[in-house]
Structure formats: structure tokens, C-alpha cells
Design a protein around this nucleic acid. Structure first.
Lengths: 235, 235, 235, 235
DNA sequence: GATGAATGAGTATTCATTCAT
DNA sequence: GATGAATGAATACTCATTCAT
């Protein structure tokens, strides 16, 4: 973007997230210093989410984090690096949560999908986390590395996980024989759209539909469409 | 000193598309002049779509349109005005196409929805048109007027149209008694996601799933979930 | 998008001259920082005086001040604000000097006026100070606020002061009964014209009349015209 | 000012004022064409007077003259040339009027000066004409040629004329033996200041002193100061 | 480490000037 | 001759980045 800025790859830079969680953090001053990068990251997430990459000023991030502008550069060598750190940090967190949630066992495969809706909804309806897909969408074009990373680590792994459930359901005769890859894309679409919708329109919308209603209907409709025989207690 | 920037509302400014109704336009220069605003708009759409509002430079737009930078300002008084004109122009076009398509009659309400998928897919899979939702999502936060406009004129009207079909289908006993407002949101989600997906990941993806496959499965699954009795010839 | 330019009134902004009351300022950098606004102001005065508002480039001001362009904006939010600060700063200084000088007592009212010529001549013949009336003249049309301020604070107060002397002289039977308001306008005219003349023609004039000669004759002629009985030792 | 603009001397360019006043101008169309340069000049005078050179846009001049922007360039090759033509045209006119007026005979030299005040007041209180000294003061710094021209042709000739009267008055024993060069400078100062005052403060002043009052007092005071024995009928 | 004043390359916008019609 | 669309150099202002304190 800006000429003469060093362009590091997304994955190789680990120097920043130097967290020592195992150590019993003692003095408040020490604690503060240790927490700095995370505080900056959070301030950056909120600012990037609201304005996008280009329109975010380092001043804004610093002000929101309650530190001086120059201090950011102690932890992140450039605005781009900060952006990438934000995306990576919160993305990885999102993935971990979703994976953990999806791993829970359930009586039927339909039930597992139904729970997946709940879990993903919970994760993504937190405005802090919903910001991620939006950022990837908005600025991914200028950060191919981020788009690639998101595609591989978030979308790829998430869809893979879900596709495994669908595949198992088909094998068990519970689901109709559809293309699992395609089915899971359809499955996550309303969840994503709901998150993006919230972010985009909540400032300009007086009365919006509660996401829970939407996602409940989604689970019903989708499973009814997918299952060989409709689930019993269907409303 | 500095002449006040006109800050026009999104809807009221029609001054730019001053096309003369006479058909037999003669000189090439005249022809050029008439076509300018549209050429600028197209160049701007492509650049805004690729970079977002902030990262787009007027130089880029001018270069892409093959004109001098100052020429843009002959037709649009500011970068913001240009952005709004782009969104308005192509949004309105999108709406008109979609509405026309949805108006087509069909034997069953399910069939109307199925056709709607096809139509909307066609519209939105054109990268030029898919850029619009992306722009609204990416930069709507900084242009509340545009978000509002999009919410009202595109989302509102589109969902209203579809909700009418769903409502009719329910009344006819063809669809199950679901919340039509919620159902249509679910209905359009995969279509939107497919469009956004294309834009976001096609530059970084080697082998992607064909959108047609996805949308066909969507129609099947969704209608099977919605209809009282599954359509017969369902695969 | 673009943060709104603050358009402040001429009088209310005191934010720039934030001088710390502590006397023992230490580091050279600190000293530099404190002196910056005044340095910028002086460079701006010279440049505005030479070129007028419109033709002055911020680059020129910066270069003359020996700083980077952006640094100006650390202290003054816009070219207009800088201009107004210049006028206000030096105008106020002029007024203060002139008032102090006029307050001096003298044996006769004629003598007070004669001293006023000397004082005002001293003040206004400094090219740095003479620039102010010229700026008000040249750019006051585009800065009505400045014209108003100058009219009120400089012309109004100055003329009021002088009119008081004339009125006292008339009451004392020393001066003929003329309109004091009109008389003082005539009184200051040659002083102002002399200042403007210096500025305008000194670059293109080989041999000019020394202002002191002019002002001495002015005092003689004017007082002889004004006094009931001509002053004694008149040449 | 602007690099790469041709800089012609002030006097040598006569190509523009191609007026044929002796010809009986016939058709309205022909008349229009003939009058063009003068109309442009008048529009330019008003705009320059109001805004100064730099802040005047060719668009404004064209709009005020009721012609297209490009048309100005048919008569004047650049903005600078236009400015110079304006100053020259109206300056020369001013001089001619003043000289004619001053040539009138009168019983005493004091009376000739008194009439000169009236004449010059008439000339200079017309806002159109008062603009000239203002332009020279405001923009003369950037147009040394104009300053020089004004100094030589207006100030020089005007002061010379008046100095002649003063010199004659002294020789005749009517005036006291003062430096004529200095005296006439003092003589014209209030007249100039009055004109400049009108231009500068009339937009921001609610109730101003009538110039006639001022100039009448000026003539009285000045002549009383200058004459050996005060004029009789002095108020 | 932390600060924030200073920098200067970058960008939106203006406007004198040109020239095809 | 007249026009006004087009040009592009000029300029106010921004903001990521640096570095002396």
C-alpha cells in the first residue's frame, strides 16, 4: 500500500505475542506492561472494525488504548503489522472456540449441527468477534495474505469440521446424500450474514429481528431440508 | 475562502445524469461528453470495489477511466459524492433487475422462489454487481446514509417482495407456517455469501466450488425445508 | 470523513499560546517547543505581508520558519487560523504600544498630539508592524471578521484615545471647535499613508523622502491648522 | 508567481486595447464585439477589487462579464495580463480626470487646492476608482512593474502637479515656505485614506462618517496650516 | 520503556490555460 | 469568434513513522 513499508508474511512474525501466561504475574506495573500488547490489540480491533484499515489512524488506536502514539510502535512495527496481528489474534481465538464447541458429542448428527448453530451464533454475535469476517471482507483485497490465512485456517478448518458431521450423517442414513462441501457452505451462510447484518445495519435500524429467532428457524429449516425423515418434535 | 462543499442527501441529486433525450447524437466529442459520467462511474465502481473507499485514490479512478484527475470533478464534486453516486447508480440498477425478475409468474410458489434464486444468482455473481453489497458492508459504517439507503431500498424492498411470495405460499397451504420475514432472510443469505465469497477469495483460491452447484443445492434444501410436502421430482 | 475544520471566531481562541509559567526552562528541545508558535507567527507575518493571504504558500511559511510544513499544523489548524493569529497577535501588540505611548502626559494638548505623531510613527514605520494595516486592507474583504476586529480594536480605540485629547484641547480653548471624530481621522491619515507608502514603493523607488521629515511637517501643519493661536516656536 | 507564465512588461503590450472610437459603430452585434474587452475589463476590475489578484478566479470574471471563460483569453493572454490591463486602463483614466480637474484656474492658490480636494474626492470616492489604489497596495508587491508604473505615472505626476501649485503659492507669499514635495504628500493622505477606509470598512460598519464632511474639514485645516494668513471666511 | 513533537511523502481538490467543436 | 470540456500543475492538509528527551 504505502511504498517503502516492510511487508512481512502473516505467519512468520511471532515476535509480538510474547505472552507468558504460565507465570504468576506479580506487581501491577509488571502486569500493566505485560498486558500492553493485548490492550493495544483490543483498541485496534475496535477501531479497525469501525473504520476499516485505511481510515483508521494510529492516533485513534493510541487514544482508545490510553497510550501515546509512539508506544504502539514498541510492539508492532507498522500499521500493517498491527492489522495483521489483530486479525490473527482474534481469528485464532474464534477458531479455537468453535472447534472446541463442535467437538461436543450429541445423540444424532442433526443435533450436532443444531448445537453448532448455537455455538457459532454465540461466538459470532459478539460484536467484537463479528468484526473479523467484516474486516476480512473489507480489507482482504488489500491483504491477500490475510484472505489466504482466513480461507485456510478459519473457513477451511470450520467447513472441514462441519463437513465431517454431514458426511457421517449421510453415512448413517440420517441425512440425504448431498454434497457435504456445498451443504456446509449453505449451513454457515445465515450465521455469517446475521453477524454482518448486525454490524452494518444496527446503527441505522430502529427495530431489527432478534438473531436468536433467525438462527432457530435456520436450524429447523436446514435440518428439515437435509434429513431423510424430518425430525420428530419439529414445531 | 473555500467554497462550501455541497453535502447532498443520497436521493435528491439527479444533476449528474443529464442525458439529452434527442437520439441522433452527432459529433464524437459530444458522444464522449455524454458518456463521461457513466465511464467515470464504472471506473470508480471497480476501484472502490477493489480497494474500499479510503484506499481508493482519485488518481486511480481517473487513470482507469482514461481521463485526467480534474475531469472527475467536472461531474462529481468530491470523492464522497462519487462514492455515493456509484452506490446509488448500481444499486438502483440491481434492484430494478431483481424486481423485474421476481415478478415473473410461476405455477407454484416454490417455483417462484426457485426462479428467484436463479435470478438473484445471475445478478449477484457478476463481479461488478456483487461489489455493491461488499461496499455497503465495508464502508457503510462511514456512510450511514448509504447504509440506510441500502437497508431501505435494496434489502427492504427485496425482502418485502420475497416475503410476499412466502406469505402467499403459506396461505395456499404450500409452505409451512413460518415467520416470512425470518424465512426470506435465511433464503437470501447463501446467495449473498456466495457473492461475497467470490469477491473475497477468488484471488487467493486455486479451485473453488462453482456457484451454480451451490445455489442449486440451496434451492432444493431450502424448499424441502419450507414446503409442507416435499416437491416430487426432488433428486 | 474529513474532520470538520474548526472555524473559530477571532477573539476566543487562546489555545495556541500555551506558555508554561515556570521560569527555569531546561532542555534545548523544550525551549524549542515553547518558542515554536511565535517563530511560526513571525515567519507567517513576513510571508503574508509580502504576498497577501492567497498567494502565501504554507511551504513558504514553513521554509522561512525553518520547520517542516506539517509542524505548522501542530499549532494552527489551518491557513486561515494562522492568518488570523498573525493579525491578532501583532495587532494587539501594536495597540498596546500605541496606547501606552499616548498615555504620557504633556504640558499642552498640542504637545500630546505632537508626541502621538512621534510614537505612532515609530510604531508603524517598523516594516514588521506596518504590514498589519496593509494586510487588513488587502485581505480584509475576504476576512470580514478581521476587518471588524481591526475596526473595533485598533481604529476604534486609537481614534477614541486621540479624540479625547482633541476634545480636551477644545474644552481648554486650545483647539478650535472642530468635529473631534473627523479631526483625528485626518490626523492619522498621513501616518498610515506613510507606512503603506514605505511598504509599497520602497522596493521600486530609488530615492524616497525620509518619513521623519514628513511626519514632522505633518505635526506642524496639522497643529497650526487646529490650534486657536499658532504655537509659538513654529519654524 | 506561476512558473512558466510569460512575463511581459507592463508598458509594451498594446495589442489588447484595440479600440476604434472614431468609427461610428453600427450593428448591435458589431457593437457587442467592440465592447467586449471593455466589459471584460470592468468585470475584472470589480472582481480583483473585491478579492485581490490571487483569490480572483477567471471563472468569476467570465461569469460577471457574462461570457465564457475561454473568451477572456481572446483578449488577454493570461490572468496577469488581465490584471495589468485593468490597472493600466483605470489608472490612466484616473490620472486624466485628475489632471484635467487640477488645470482649472482659480483666484488663489488656496482655492486651487481646495478645488483639488473636491475633484480628487469625487474621483476616488467612486468605489470603482477607489479600487485602484487598493489593488496597487494589496498586490503591488507581486507586480513590481505595476508598483513602478503607479509610482511614476499616478503618484509622480499627481504630486508633481500639486507641488507646482504649492510652489507657486509660496512664491506668491500666499503659503508658508514649506517643502512642497512633503506638503503635497500630506495633502493627499486623507483623501486616499478616506477612499481606502470606505472600501475596507463599509461592509462591516453600520454608521460611518460621510466622506464629504471629512474632506471639507481637511481642506480647512490643511489650508489654515499652510497659508501665511488664515483664509477669511473660515468657519 | 514511554512520550509526543517533528517530519515529509501522500492525497483530495482547485483553477489557469488549452483546444476541438 | 465563442465556447466550455478537459487538462495537469499547484497547494492545503493528513498521518504513518521516527527519535530526542
Amino acid at each position: 500500500m504505502h511504498p517503502g513499508r516492510r511487508k512481512r508474511t502473516l505467519m512468520t512474525d511471532q515476535s509480538v505475542t510474547k505472552r507468558t501466561p504460565t507465570m504468576t504475574e506479580a506487581s501491577p506495573r509488571r502486569r500493566r506492561k505485560e498486558a500492553r500488547p493485548a490492550e493495544v490489540l483490543e483498541a485496534a480491533l475496535e477501531t479497525f472494525a469501525r473504520k476499516g484499515f485505511s481510515a483508521t489512524r494510529m492516533d485513534d488506536v493510541a487514544a482508545r488504548a490510553g497510550i501515546a502514539k509512539g508506544t504502539i510502535y514498541l510492539y508492532y512495527p507498522s500499521k500493517e503489522a498491527l492489522f495483521e496481528a489483530v486479525v490473527r489474534e482474534y481469528l485464532v481465538e474464534n477458531i479455537a472456540r468453535a472447534e472446541a464447541a463442535l467437538a461436543h458429542p450429541a445423540p444424532t448428527h442433526a443435533e450436532r449441527l443444531r448445537r453448532a448453530v448455537g455455538i457459532m451464533g454465540q461466538v459470532i454475535l459478539d460484536p467484537r468477534r463479528a468484526a473479523l469476517p467484516k474486516l476480512v471482507l473489507a480489507d482482504g483485497g488489500m491483504f491477500p495474505e490475510i484472505a489466504r490465512f482466513y480461507r485456510r485456517e478459519v473457513v477451511g478448518r470450520g467447513l472441514g469440521l462441519l463437513a465431517g458431521i454431514v458426511r457421517a450423517g449421510i453415512a448413517a442414513g440420517e441425512f440425504r446424500p448431498v454434497d457435504p462441501e456445498a451443504a456446509v457452505r449453505l449451513f454457515v451462510s445465515p450465521i455469517l450474514i446475521t453477524a454482518l447484518w448486525q454490524i452494518t445495519f444496527s446503527p441505522v435500524e430502529e427495530h431489527s429481528m432478534p438473531p436468536e429467532t433467525l438462527l432457530a428457524l435456520h436450524a429447523d429449516l436446514f435440518l428439515r431440508g437435509l434429513c431423510v425423515s424430518p425430525p420428530e418434535g419439529d414445531r
